[in-house]
Design a binder for these strands. Structure first.
Lengths: 348, 348
DNA sequence: CCCTTCACGCGAACCGGTTCGACACAAGCG
DNA sequence: CGCTTGTGTCGAACCGGTTCGCGTGAAGGG
C-alpha cells in the first residue's frame, strides 16, 4: 500500500502517481483516472512521515500548553479547543506539549526533532526562555500572550492591564471605595506570568488614579482556595465591598465565601474580573466580567502561524484584543446601607 | 545538522553514529565519546520524520476527542490533560483530532497517513463506527468508554449504570420519593453516547426497583440550559425533591434555578450525580457525587495503549472503574417539612 | 605460528514519498 | 520536409534516518 504498489497496478511510474496526486505537473486525463481508480480501490493514502521527510513540511503545529499548576483551567480548555479546530480547518494537525520551559524533554522533541512546522505557545511569562529560544532560532511560532518586549515577535494578546483597569473604573463608578484584587497563585506571579503581572499593574494604577483603598491577594486555582481567600479579604478589611479577579477557577469558592459571610451579591458586594463568558455564566449570579475571547484568540493564532509558515520572511504581526465588559448580574452600586451582616442578604 | 554531518565531523560513517546513538551494536568508548562531543557541540537531534519512516514508529499517539457539542466540557479537559501527561511520561507525543466519525478528514489523516502509532478514543457511542473501523483494521487503539459490545476490544470505562444507580439508592435511602434525572443533550442521547445511555438505564432501573416516581430530562451542556431545565422540572412536578445529573456543565445553572425557586440545597432539595471532583467542589454547596477519576483513566488508557504497541498480539485488556460516591454537602434527608416556598431557604 | 573468534566500523540498501532533468512523440510552423 | 514547441511520462537522485552483511585487525587458543 505504498506509491510504488499503486504505480505498478496502474502501469505507470511512481513519479507519475505523485504528479497525478499533487497536480504539480500535467498528467493526461486517461492516466489520472486510471491511477485514481486504483487508489480508490485500495484505499491508498500517502505516508505522512515519508512526505514530511521529502518536502520538509509536517503539516503539524505544536501547541505548548504548560499546566498552570496542578491542573488545567477552563480557559486553557477553550484555547486548546479553538486552536485544534482552527488548525483542522487549515489542514493542520495539532501536537500537544505540556512544556513549561525551554529544557523540557517534550519541548525538545517537538522542535529539535522537527515534529512540527511551527508552534503556538500558551501561558506566556514576561521573561520567557521558550520565547527567547524560538526567537533566536527564528522558529515559526505565535504566542497567545506577550512577553515584556513583544516587539518583533508574533502574538495574539489580551490587554490585561486595560481590562483590569476597566474593572476598577466600573466599580469606582458604582461608588465602591475599598476593593480587593484576587490574582492567580503567587507561584505564577513570581514565575512572571503575563496575565498575573499586567492585571495586577492595571488594577493598582487604576485604583491609585481613583484614590481607592485596595488590597491584593494571590489565590490558588481552585474553589477551596477561593473560599479561603475571601475569608482573608473580609478578615483583613471587613469594609471591603467589591473585588476584581483574574482567577476563574477560584470563582466558585469566592462566591461560596461571600454566601457564608452573609454578603449578598450584588447588593452587599460586587464581583467582577476577567473571565471567559462560558465560565462567567456558570456562577450565580452571573458574573459581570471582561470576556476572554478564547475562541477568537485561538483562531487568530492559527491564522497568524499559517501565514508565517506560508511566507517565512513576512514581517511580524500581532493582535492585541481589548474586549468589553459584559454587564451581567454580579455588580451593583456600593450600598449606602451599612456593611452587610449575616442574614441581611436574605431578604429576597 | 543531519546524521551525515555529524558523521563527517566525527570522522566516522553514518551507521556508526546511528549505532552510537541507539546502542543496538557495540561502539568503542573512544568513538562514542568523539561522536557525543560533536553532537553536543552542534546540538544535533535526529529528525523525527526520517526516523519514523525508517523504523515505522512515530512515537506519537492520536487522541480523538470530538466536541461533545458546541464546546468542550471540563471533564474532557481533565482527560486530555491526563492523557498528555501520561503519554509524555512514556515518551510519546499526543496528536489531537476533533473527529466525531469515521469519515472525518482529520481521522483519515491520523490513521490513513500513519501519523500515529495508536489512538485513544473519547466520547464513545454504543454503536461507534470509529471503533468498528479500528477493530476491523486491527489498528492499535484504546477507548475511554465502551461500546455496546466491548468484548474483544481495549478500553477503560466507567460503570455509568452502577454509578447512576448508586445515586438513586443514595437519594432513596435519604427518603426521597420523587426525583428527576438531568441527562446530557438529547442530540447526544440520540447519537448513542455511552454515558448518556448507560446512566439513564441505571437511573431508570434503580428507580423502578425502589418504586420511585421519576422524570428524565435532556439538558444542554451549559449553565443557562441547566437553569431552564430546572424550571421545567419544578413546573412538571413541584413535589420533586432531588435530582441526579451527568451534566456537569449544566450544574451551575441547576443550582441557580434552585436558588431562584427558593429551594435551599440540601435542605429542600438534594442534588447528586456523576461529576469530577474538581467541578463538584466548585459549586456551592459542594456536590455529593460519584467521582469521575479522569486522571486515572487517562493514565490507564495510555498504559494499555503502550502495552498494546509493545506487544502487537497481546490479548485485549480493559479496566472498568466504579468509583465511590463522595459525600459532600448537596444531599440531605427528604424534608418532612412542606415543599419550600421562596424565602424559606434563607434562614441560615 | 596459524587459525578461529570477536570487537568494531564501513558501505549499501531500504523506508515512501517528491522533484528535477531528460526523452519520446505529436502538433504547428515556415 | 525539417525544426521548434509543447505535452506526458519516466528514471534517478534525494530527504535523513536504520539495519544488514561484510571486512579488517587484534586478541586468544592449540
Amino acid at each position: 500500500m505504498n506509491i510504488g504498489e499503486i504505480a505498478k497496478r496502474a502501469g505507470v511510474s511512481r513519479s507519475t502517481v505523485s504528479y497525478a496526486l499533487s497536480g504539480k505537473r500535467a498528467v493526461s486525463d486517461r492516466t489520472r483516472e486510471k491511477i485514481q481508480r486504483v487508489i480508490d480501490e485500495l484505499g491508498y493514502r500517502p505516508n505522512a512521515s515519508a512526505r514530511a521527510l521529502a518536502n520538509g513540511r509536517t503539516r503539524t503545529i505544536g501547541l505548548v500548553f504548560p499546566p498552570a499548576g496542578d491542573h488545567y483551567t477552563g480557559m486553557q480548555l477553550d484555547f486548546i479547543g479553538s486552536v485544534v479546530e482552527a488548525a483542522a480547518a487549515n489542514d493542520y494537525d495539532v501536537l500537544l506539549s505540556p512544556s513549561g520551559v525551554d529544557s523540557d524533554r517534550s519541548f525538545q522533541r517537538l522542535l529539535g526533532e522537527r515534529r512540527v512546522d511551527g508552534a503556538i505557545l500558551m501561558e506566556i511569562r514576561l521573561q520567557d526562555d521558550r520565547v527567547d529560544h524560538l526567537l533566536a532560532e527564528n522558529f515559526p511560532s505565535v504566542c497567545i500572550g506577550r512577553t515584556a518586549q513583544p516587539e518583533g515577535d508574533w502574538w495574539v494578546g489580551l490587554d490585561h492591564t486595560g481590562l483590569a483597569a476597566a474593572c476598577v473604573h466600573h466599580l469606582a463608578d458604582l461608588g465602591h471605595r475599598r476593593i480587593a484584587f484576587v490574582n492567580r497563585p503567587e507561584r505564577l506571579l513570581r514565575a512572571g506570568y503575563e496575565s498575573a503581572h499586567r492585571g495586577l499593574d492595571g488594577f493598582t494604577k487604576a485604583a491609585a488614579e481613583r484614590g481607592l483603598t485596595v488590597r491584593t491577594y494571590n489565590c490558588g486555582d481552585d474553589a477551596p482556595s477561593g473560599q479561603a481567600c475571601l475569608e482573608r479579604i473580609l478578615h483583613d478589611e471587613p469594609a471591603t465591598t467589591a473585588l476584581v479577579t483574574l482567577n476563574e477557577a477560584a470563582l466558585g469558592g469566592l462566591y461560596r465565601g461571600l454566601a457564608e459571610a452573609g454578603r449578598h451579591v450584588p447588593r452587599d458586594f460586587s464581583v467582577t474580573g476577567v473571565v471567559a463568558t462560558r465560565w462567567a455564566e456558570t456562577v450565580t449570579p452571573q458574573l459581570t466580567a471582561a470576556d476572554v475571547p478564547a475562541a477568537q484568540m485561538g483562531r487568530l493564532a492559527v491564522e497568524l502561524l499559517a501565514e508565517r509558515l506560508d511566507r517565512p520572511d513576512a514581517p511580524p504581526r500581532h493582535h492585541l484584543l481589548a474586549p468589553p465588559i459584559s454587564l451581567r448580574a454580579s455588580t451593583g452600586p456600593a450600598g449606602t446601607v451599612a456593611p452587610a451582616t449575616p442574614g441581611a442578604g436574605l431578604i429576597a
